[in-house]
């Protein structure tokens, strides 16, 4: 009840943000642009063949603007959610009302997830209309599935950013932390993997001569939520046309991407809440 009141307030407050409006417009433009690019300029292989894989190829192409922009929008929605209120003093107004700190954290997550849902729906509506206009083989169900997974991705980054925002006192540190993490996930994940691999080699955990990457390192690589998003999207949209390596361990199967997304959605914010609940405002 209390959580819902906070969530509603968050939604009404955040949805009026001009920055959000700007980012949503940008997102819509990227979606339309991607749809145009992949249907008209350089259609990916398979787009000329039968109707079924064509849609999937095109829809898959929409993943690129999504997995770059949604982490950014999600982070911007979340990184000041609590530390900003702490700095301005409005957190004392909020907690002077009969809300617990859990109500505040959950309400923020819920309300801002609602906001990113709106943002994703707008972006996908624009992208969908463009696709519909440009190709004959627009598959509404596949498109809806991709929209759903994208909303989940957005929520994951909202959640991570709120975690930073509630765990640290300074909104500058929260911002720096949340943005660094997005940059790592988006652009520097391979650097991290190389480093981990190098350290593992130095510690003789991996044999240099080994031709295949050990499964634990593959697992570590799959922990990136943007990667998990791509894996799960392809998993849900694919109709068995791909070749999957036979008998991987369960944690390297594609459905496990959902577990990884759920982990990022719940665990960081859970830990941050425990810290936030104990500190002085």
């Amino acid at each position: 009840m209390s959580t819902l009141a906070v969530a509603k307030k968050e939604f009404h407050d955040g949805i009026r943000s001009r920055v959000l409006a700007g980012l949503t417009v940008l997102f819509g433009a990227f979606m339309a642009g991607a749809a145009y690019y992949y249907t008209e300029i350089t259609p990916p292989a398979g787009i000329q063949s039968s109707a079924e894989p064509q849609t999937i190829a095109v829809i898959n192409s929409l993943i690129i603007p999504t997995y770059i922009l949604l982490p950014i929008i999600g982070t911007i929605l979340g990184y000041k959610s609590i530390s900003g209120e702490r700095e301005s003093g409005s957190l004392k107004f909020l907690l002077g009302l009969p809300h617990t700190r859990r109500d505040v954290v959950c309400g923020k997550l819920l309300g801002r997830s609602g906001i990113i849902t709106v943002s994703v729906l707008v972006g996908f509506a624009v992208g969908g209309l463009a696709l519909y206009a440009l190709t004959d083989a627009f598959q509404i169900v596949d498109f809806a599935v991709l929209t759903g997974v994208s909303i989940l991705l957005g929520m994951v980054f909202v959640s991570i950013a709120i975690a930073f925002s509630s765990a640290v006192r300074s909104s500058t540190i929260a911002t720096a932390g949340a943005i660094s993490l997005v940059l790592v996930f988006l652009f520097f994940w391979n650097v991290v993997l190389t480093l981990v691999g190098y350290v593992a080699q130095e510690l003789s955990l991996i044999e240099t001569a080994q031709s295949q990457t050990p499964t634990w390192l593959q697992f570590f690589a799959s922990l990136n939520p943007t990667g998990a998003y791509q894996t799960t999207s392809i998993y849900l949209l694919d109709n068995g046309t791909r070749s999957v390596p036979s008998n991987p361990p369960f944690y390297l199967e594609e459905w496990f991407g959902f577990v990884i997304l759920a982990f990022w959605l719940v665990v960081p914010i859970g830990l941050a809440y425990l810290r936030f609940d104990r500190t002085d405002l």
């Binding site: 009026r16 003093g89 409005s90 002077g96 009302l97 009969p98």
Partner: peptide, 19 residues
Amino acid sequence: QSIRRRTGVLPEGCDLYDR
């Protein structure tokens, strides 16, 4: 929480939600 249900609070120089 129960206390704050029965109490009206005006925090010092508190900021509200601009939007």
